[in-house]
Design a protein around this nucleic acid. Structure first.
Lengths: 215, 215
DNA sequence: GCATTCAGTGATAGCCTCTCACTCACGCTT
DNA sequence: AAGCGTGAGTGAGAGGCTATCACTGAATGC
């Protein structure tokens, strides 16, 4: 905590390591991230980095945390814009898409293939919950239909993820579909599964947002 | 082509390599796939595998092809079941979910994070198109609304992916949303983003299928 | 029966992560 | 101002990986 010169240097080097890591990830993907290569790019020898991060995993975990933080901030800022609930929900969708396409590898770091044994630490799941809370907050302002179908019923009693939000089941349901549908679009788009199909993913995205707000 | 003993042996060894590869992938993910480890498990030395596969990439590419093939076959079989279009569409969704959850890593091999430079070879994109064709075929039997919205309009003239299928735009649109919505659900579920949220992903999936067939 | 083909080997190069013993400079304390 | 301790950075090295190469030895086909 002391702002000694050493501390300042340390945090600065840590920041530069992360910066280089993002560059590598953006061009070659997270799986190709190499501590050695980062060190070489910074003009140091490989083992030096272990002064700053316990290992490759810790670095990646921290990058994941930063990515979540960035998305959560973007969501928060968008939700705080003025406008009706519909506008803000649409803006949220737009923010999500822009954020995803701006740096696809960052998106994939969060929503791509996880390492089988990996369990996200609590501070990361907390940010994920924060994102969900913003989404829920905006969805709560939307007009909603009466509960219908077994899933709405199920949600009445299975809602620990929305613990402190008093929204009725249809609102929770919409927040979930909002999340899953847009994520389906984006993960396919980012992974390149639309390339060569010949349609404009942006228009499909817009159509899904419309359906979400209408439904 | 000759069914000489050597050929038989060769194809058998190739098959065993793939089998071991799937085991490794199922437990540790594709990123941890190691030719060396496979060789060791088979009682041979590392370089021996290079007689059968040009390298790690070729092996993985072939596994991806097999995964696609497996999904395409499952789709084809489901679509060929008797029943109305709605039933068959619902069955397709169910097949997709079962196929995905049966071996999550196989699902992720296809729909997870791609290697940035990777371009799928033609025989793989052909299978992907085959899958889409089955989906389209079933969706064509569903009652559909009049074209509405800019995306339907866009689809009228941007449909190279459905080249030889004369379905009208709303049918194409539904096939796409079918695909993207279910994929959103499944990729989140498979990647573990629902764990800890406390609701039943199966019910949400069912609700989405209902919405898809109603909409 | 003999030449050929081909599976499998060990050695090797070049990556990687990560540990360890060591050096040496910086900055805090006296 | 002087010196001492902390900690940044080093090279060496263990152990993993992909991939290439020259070589051996056995099975195959003529």
């Amino acid at each position: 905590m002391a702002d000694s010169p050493r501390e300042r240097y340390r945090t600065q080097v840590r920041a530069e390591i992360k910066e280089r890591a993002w560059e590598q990830i953006a061009t070659a993907g997270a799986s190709a991230l190499s501590l050695n290569a980062i060190a070489k790019a910074m003009g140091m020898s490989g083992p030096a980095l272990y002064r700053y991060f316990a290992g490759r995993d810790e670095l990646i975990t921290e990058l994941i945390g930063d990515a979540y933080r960035s998305l959560a901030d973007a969501f928060r800022a968008t939700a705080d814009e003025s406008g009706g609930a519909e506008e803000r929900a649409a803006a949220l969708a737009h923010t999500l898409r822009r954020w995803s396409l701006k740096d696809p590898q960052r998106y994939l770091l969060i929503y791509g293939t996880p390492v089988p044994g990996y369990h996200a630490p609590d501070d990361i799941t907390a940010i994920a919950a924060e994102i969900m809370a913003v989404l829920l907050e905006v969805c709560a302002g939307l007009p909603y239909p009466a509960p219908a179908g077994p899933f709405d019923e199920h949600l009445e009693t299975h809602r620990p993820w929305a613990e402190d939000h008093p929204a009725p089941a249809p609102v929770l349901h919409r927040a979930l579909t909002f999340w899953t549908r847009l994520h389906g679009l984006l993960s396919l788009e980012v992974a390149g599964h639309f390339t060569g199909m010949g349609f404009d993913p942006g228009l499909l995205f817009a159509a899904e947002v419309d359906a979400l707000l209408a439904g």
